[in-house]
Amino acid sequence: MTRLWRDMRAILASLLLLPVLAGCDRLPVAGSGPQVGDYRPEEAGTVDHALCLLGFTGVPMRELASGHHIVDVTLNGRPGTFVLDTGANATVIHAGYETDFGLAEGGRVGGAVGLGGAMEARQVGIDDFAIGPVPVRLRRIMVTDLGQIATMLAPMAGGSVHGIVGQDAMKAHRAVIDVSRSLVHLIPEDRDPAPVPAERCRTDASE
């Protein structure tokens, strides 16, 4: 790694601290934890209901004191916590957790852009990936060092932050993000939004 690249990484990491520090004046009180989205597709006249009728499934996110949103994921059948990052071109896992999720060593070397700016990464195959209850059509994931990001966000998340959900996953499932209510809506199937039976959006169908 060149000196210029190391200097750029240091600058980008310091810039990442700005939104984290800006959120310090609204840190939650002890025991309150991240704010969790409330998904109610059965309520007629709501955005949740309207999107549900078009085939979307809402996945609650958790808003951290920094303003970042995290979601529960499953990677290779194992649960994890990822940051939702609309600025990341690819879904990435922190290299420190690759063995925990059964990822193979090696892989094709490439690059990714996200919370920490441009970064060196390698691409590896995966068996399955899901955001909440929605299976995601990803067959490969990027692996890189997200140590600084993971370390800064973990205390606010109340546990480990394992990676980043990027644009590749969001585009594949037509993601609609409701930031104010901490929800991300995804279409499970590979299709455009289209009407679905109203029964799908009843309370018992969404539980």
Rank of each mutant, 00 (worst) to 15 (best):
R140M: 13
V161M: 02
V143F: 03
V184D: 04
P195G: 09
L115S: 15
P197A: 05
M152C: 12
E105R: 15
F129T: 01
V113S: 14
I164R: 05
G125D: 13
I187P: 09
A150L: 13
H173G: 02
V165F: 08
G116L: 12
L115C: 12
D127F: 00
V134I: 08
G132Q: 06
H173N: 02
A150I: 12
I131E: 10
R137H: 15
V113Q: 14
E199N: 07
L146M: 11
S180E: 02
A194L: 06
P188Y: 08
R191N: 03
A112M: 14
G106P: 03
L183D: 07
E120P: 02
V143G: 05
G132N: 01
R200Y: 07
D127H: 02
D192A: 13
Q167N: 06
R181A: 05
A194H: 08
S180W: 00
V113P: 09
L138R: 15
M152D: 13
G166W: 03
A169P: 04
D192I: 08
G158C: 10
D127V: 00
G106L: 01
A157L: 12
I177V: 10
D100T: 09
D127M: 01
E199M: 02
P188T: 09
G114Y: 14
V179M: 00
I187E: 06
M119I: 11
D100H: 11
A112E: 14
I141C: 10
A157S: 14
I141D: 13
S160Q: 11
P133L: 08
A198T: 12
G159R: 12
